[in-house]
């Protein structure tokens, strides 16, 4: 039991150190070091891979969740004869909670897993050691650009998911429950506050940190060939999702 606690603490210490190093290489090194450690083009490429290419699936999931939410909420509001309030409930639920959370979970599977698999394979094929031998810092070269890319793209995708969710709700609400479009939009904007959207975006920044740090950390400590990479990828996805939901709980309590 004690051994297990110690192992957890040592992982926690290592991942914190990785986070500090990543912050240094992402924000300080580009101004201080002679060479930034990574190429600006790499960040653009990663922003395209993690962000732009994730947009369609985020839009799809966002729209579906928005409509499902309308169905579920309307089902309960019907008994009170207050179906037209559905727009407000859905708007708040999507922007505060489901938009950021589902986007983060989606990106954990799509991007976090890819980070672990790619960097983990580089670890087992000695590519990361080769970088170190060339005096190129692996955190600066590999982790920092991924961190920056997701830090920008996850809030963007969350906003896209928010809009898609509202739109999905709007379509379902106006077609299935005969709420007039004008009244739906009116209720939405009467209920929705700017701080709802903002709290969702703040959470998405935290989630971006969790996804990159867990994904890259699990990759950098991979041992034992392809099996190790598979195991690490699975572990990274599970750990990241659990941490995202825990962090979501904490920050929801703080940001209410």
């Amino acid at each position: 039991m004690l051994g297990k606690t110690n192992l957890w603490l040592s992982h926690l210490a290592s991942i914190s150190r990785l986070f500090v190093l990543t912050l240094y290489w992402a924000f300080i090194a580009p101004w201080r070091e002679r060479h930034a450690g990574f190429d600006r083009r790499t960040v653009w490429r990663l922003m395209d891979e993690t962000g732009v290419q994730s947009a369609p699936i985020v839009i799809l999931i966002g729209t579906l969740v928005g409509s499902i939410l309308v169905l579920q909420t309307a089902y309960q509001l019907q008994s009170y004869g207050q179906v037209r309030l559905v727009a407000g409930f859905v708007a708040v639920a999507v922007t505060r909670e489901l938009g950021p959370l589902l986007t983060a979970i989606l990106l954990t599977g799509r991007v976090g897993a890819a980070f672990t698999a790619e960097l983990g394979t580089m670890k087992v094929s000695e590519e990361i050691l080769a970088l170190e031998v060339m005096a190129i810092h692996p955190v600066g070269f590999l982790v920092a650009p991924r961190f920056l890319a997701l830090l920008v793209m996850l809030p963007c995708l969350t906003m896209i998911a928010d809009v898609a969710g509202l739109l999905g709700g709007f379509i379902t609400g106006t077609t299935l429950y005969q709420i007039s479009p004008g009244s739906y939009i009116d209720t939405t904007f009467r209920w929705l506050l700017f701080r709802d959207v903002l709290s969702g975006l703040i959470k998405s920044v935290i989630f971006a940190v969790i996804i990159t740090m867990v994904g890259c950390y699990r990759a950098l400590i991979v041992e034992g060939g392809p099996e190790g990479v598979g195991h690490a990828t699975m572990g990274a996805v599970v750990t990241a999702i659990v941490l995202i939901i825990v962090a979501d709980g904490i920050f929801t309590a703080i940001l209410l």
């Binding site: 060479h35 580089m122 000695e126 590519e127 050691l129 080769a130 031998v133 060339m134 190129i136």
Partner: peptide, 27 residues
């Protein structure tokens, strides 16, 4: 110093030329 790794350890995301250029660009 330089090192030749057992499996080559070239970065797969870069071309051959970019791999060779990597240490030069960096240092």
């Amino acid at each position: 110093f330089g090192m030749l790794f057992q499996g080559g350890a070239l970065l797969n995301s870069l071309t051959v030329g970019e791999n060779v250029a990597l240490p030069i660009r960096h240092h």
